[in-house]
Amino acid sequence: MKIKLLRWSSLTLRFLSGHLLPILISGLFLLPLFWMLSASLRIPGTPPTRTLEWVPQPLTFGNYVSIFHILPLGRYLLNSAFVTLTGVLLTLLTASLAGFGMSRLGPRARLRLLILSIILQMIPVSALWLARFVFFARLGISNSHWALIAPALMGTSPLFILLFYWTFRRIDPAIFETAQLDGASVIKVWWHIALPLARPALMAVGMLAFFFYWNDFINPLLYLRSQNLYTLPVGLLQLQEMDKTNWPLLMAASVLITLPALAVFATLQRAVLWWDVE
């Protein structure tokens, strides 16, 4: 009995030292999301509380319906989905092709590309807004979704090319060479052999690219003029401009835009949190 008790207390101690801090930190990092959700369930117009309120009394889900009446959020949701889906697929295509190409270059050319990617990584995008704006206007794509999808042409971020490059570099090049000796074209080797071996990288880049296009606020703000082209982040801005103190509605819209990102994260998080384990 006494021994059992002792073992229990030592286990509790181990649990506290190994888990207490992680649990506290996790709680801290969950707070913004929790407060977003909790504030979205309040009845709009009710007087603000004088003390901290974790769960609003009474609860309502009505805000999630009202926001669709105030703004054409359904339309914006579709626009966001189109831009994100196209952006992610194109990104996976260009980034994996480039990463595969890079892994097949000689060491000198590879180093040069690596340096180029790191320099590109350093350029703040705000340094490119204006010139891209002028350029897109000339091309006639400035008030269209293509202006938002354009970064996918360069694989969205040099980091994504490097992620694929690191993956392909670890694969024995003899696998690719024998396939090519058998007469397969380089594109066939990329599609049939390289890509299936790069599942973790595809998942990680897919997730990060999803966040890039789904979250993108600046590009639609810069390029889109027609309301029927707006994406969800611009919708949130419109909602804020209508009434910046209607927190229940603003938070409901925030939850709406966060949910798909959470769903993608829940599905693919293993690939990012553990991306170099497999």
Binding site: I25, F217, P233, T258
Partner: peptide, 12 residues
């Protein structure tokens, strides 16, 4: 949990 706030879109 530690990664979660990074997932929230910037405007939200």
């Amino acid at each position: 949990a530690a990664y979660l706030p990074t997932v929230i879109p910037d405007v939200a």
